[in-house]
Amino acid sequence: MSGDLAIAHNTGGTRHQARYLLPAFVGRYLYPLSGLGILFVVWWFGGWLIANDDDLSAFADFAPGPTFAALVDLIGSGDLSDSILSSLYRVGTGLLWGFAIGVPTGILIGYLTIAMRVANVPFQFLRMISPLAWMPIAVLAFETWDSAIIFLIVMATVWPIMFSTSHGVKRIDPDWFKVSRNLGASGTQMVRTIILPAIMADVMAGVRLAVGVAWVVLVPAEYLGVTSGLGYAINDARDTLAYDTLAAIVLIIGVIGYMLDSACAKLVNRFNWHQEA
């Protein structure tokens, strides 16, 4: 009798555990993986349609099979690492400038109502212009293609960083200024110890947006002039009709973009004091 009870209890316990383990696993891996699976099936099906259409069969290399083969080749040969490095260099430099301009300006317009009023309309106006629209001006204004592209990245990244920063500054509790002045903070101490940490979460959220836009803008920007970078590599593959390579590069662009975004999300969390317990 007591034995029966013990067994019943035992199995109950196991079932109990299983029920709690499953959702954790599902939430973490199953849903994202099935999303990826669906994407893959759509891709594969599209490739199959193209291959079976006489008009389009020249593009059959876009399908998953040839693409992954090309990907293995690309990674094996290391041909693409230079392209990736040049692209990352441009995005990184542009981002740095966007940060260097956006954060101080954002602090200013967040802190001074007058600055906000003066800057709001022109900045909102400039923000709505596609960074790529600056291309002709950039080409005229800068000597090298590299700096022209970096300029475009700056034009893409400066706005999200600036507006998030000013948003962060506006969220600062005015009492913090009183408290820290009371404790004898100098101007620079106030900036370093109070203002910067207080706005860091918002600044990083802006950086995350900026990285997204920059990565999207980069590829078309690299279609022009330069002879390096992922955008150039795509163009080159198209000109040589290497569609499998082209698709593999698109894949790599997506993966790197995803990794950049995840890294930024980690940074946002690292600095986020708004909801941490």
Binding site: W176, N182, W273
Partner: peptide, 17 residues
Amino acid sequence: PSARWNMMFQKASLFPW
């Protein structure tokens, strides 16, 4: 203001980070 004479407010206003 100076740290030699210190003010305390209704809210604690601690720095959350």
